[in-house]
Design a protein around this nucleic acid. Sequence first.
DNA 1: CATCTATGTTGACACATGTCGAACCAGTGC
DNA 2: GCACTGGTTCGACATGTGTCAACATAGATG
Lengths: 121, 121
Amino acid sequence: MSNAKVLPLLDPEPAEAVAPCCPPLTERPFSAEEAERTAPMFKALGDPVRLRLFSAVASHEGGEACVCDISDVGVSQPTVSHHLKKLREAGLLTSERRGTWVYYRVEPSVLAAMGQLLTAR
Amino acid sequence: MSNAKVLPLLDPEPAEAVAPCCPPLTERPFSAEEAERTAPMFKALGDPVRLRLFSAVASHEGGEACVCDISDVGVSQPTVSHHLKKLREAGLLTSERRGTWVYYRVEPSVLAAMGQLLTAR
DNA sequence: CATCTATGTTGACACATGTCGAACCAGTGC
DNA sequence: GCACTGGTTCGACATGTGTCAACATAGATG
């Protein structure tokens, strides 16, 4: 597979990955189960350092970035790793090791799902 | 603390400018200042109870609800009040006392701003 | 194999947060 | 005035979270 991914605008249908989570917040009151499932995603973005890391990855070329490119956020390297792990556990990022460096990329379906949650009725 | 003049409700300040906050997370890496300003909104929605309360208010008739209508989320009433205060401090809700009851309503501009943040490029 | 560089993990700490019961405040009605 | 109801604040506690230094691990390179 020669790596010819410049900007995958037309992704293959992710469908059942994250989409069937929940309706917009304004549609009807969330159930306890829906809230328990959805809150961690917001929580993951609720820290300034994580927000910067996520934004750095999401805005990077192809929605993918090496740790070395984004780790300048004013905290120590272990702390960066800790926050990246949190973002990974929340399902917002995925990581992959290629040789010496580790690359993080955004989970596009999650971004879309969160956007839908905040869609005004 | 025997200060008699206390008016905890009807704060004149809450929910100032939140709309003109930041570009989408995917546009460019967030600065420290942008992240510090934006993260609290996500943090406020990062708790299941607060997410249910916010959803209950947002989905209610006219985007407004009495506390008595939404306080059935499985925690005590002081805890409900505590979470509603957090949502107010984050600029997501505003409160108003009308007679016996206190009504909370969503800040529509905030909802739109957060939706824009998650808009995919 | 030895060593260096890039990340992740562990342990420890201070601090923030969610939760409750009790006390308090604001209106309504007796 | 008094009691009652809705809602907030206070005080206290257990748990969670962000942070770092120290250590551990994975590849690359000599």
